[in-house]
Simulated assay, not measured.
Amino acid sequence: MANIAAVTDAEFEAQVLKSDKPVLVDFWAEWCGPCRQVAPILDEINAEHGEKITLLKMNVDENPVTPSSYRVTGIPTINVYQGGEVVKSIVGAKPKAALLKELADFI
């Protein structure tokens, strides 16, 4: 996930909830195999659609507060935030075509 910036609990409100455009947050962890599978797909989506939607990643081990407050119990969980609210939640690794279909309203 080299191309996607990380967000922390401390930055979450400013970078995600107060953003003018939709923000996709990938909740992940180093030890999560499916998270590593979805990472290059999100890099591609970021490269193709980054002007319309902001992509960020949050390590759930390093930032326990935000995932807990949004009831993220399984990873990878991808939440899309718009206007300070969760407008889409995608749980589990999915192929690129499935992710693009789920994100069609935002990209």
Results as ranks from 00 to 15, higher is better:
2 A>L: 08
5 A>R: 05
6 A>Q: 12
7 V>Y: 00
7 V>T: 00
12 F>L: 04
13 E>L: 11
14 A>T: 12
15 Q>R: 00
16 V>E: 09
18 K>R: 15
20 D>E: 13
21 K>E: 07
22 P>F: 04
23 V>R: 01
26 D>Y: 02
26 D>I: 02
28 W>T: 03
28 W>I: 02
30 E>V: 14
30 E>K: 14
30 E>D: 15
30 E>Y: 12
31 W>L: 01
32 C>T: 12
32 C>P: 13
33 G>D: 05
35 C>N: 08
35 C>D: 08
35 C>A: 06
36 R>I: 10
36 R>T: 13
36 R>K: 15
37 Q>L: 14
39 A>E: 03
40 P>E: 05
40 P>L: 08
41 I>P: 04
42 L>H: 01
42 L>Y: 01
42 L>S: 01
44 E>Q: 14
46 N>G: 14
46 N>T: 15
46 N>H: 15
48 E>H: 07
48 E>S: 10
48 E>M: 07
49 H>V: 05
51 E>A: 14
52 K>L: 06
52 K>R: 11
54 T>V: 15
54 T>A: 09
54 T>W: 06
55 L>S: 02
57 K>Q: 00
57 K>T: 00
58 M>W: 04
59 N>P: 09
59 N>E: 10
60 V>K: 08
60 V>H: 11
61 D>I: 09
62 E>S: 13
62 E>N: 09
64 P>F: 14
64 P>K: 10
66 T>I: 15
68 S>V: 09
68 S>R: 13
69 S>D: 15
71 R>D: 10
71 R>K: 12
71 R>N: 10
72 V>S: 10
76 P>Q: 07
76 P>E: 08
77 T>H: 09
77 T>Y: 10
79 N>H: 12
79 N>E: 11
80 V>T: 09
81 Y>L: 10
82 Q>G: 01
83 G>E: 06
84 G>I: 01
84 G>D: 04
85 E>P: 11
86 V>M: 03
87 V>G: 00
87 V>M: 00
88 K>E: 05
88 K>M: 00
88 K>V: 02
88 K>G: 00
89 S>N: 07
89 S>A: 10
89 S>P: 06
91 V>Q: 01
92 G>R: 02
94 K>C: 12
95 P>G: 11
96 K>L: 02
98 A>N: 13
99 L>E: 04
100 L>C: 08
101 K>F: 07
103 L>T: 02
104 A>D: 05
104 A>G: 04
105 D>H: 04
105 D>Q: 07
105 D>E: 09
106 F>A: 13
107 I>L: 05
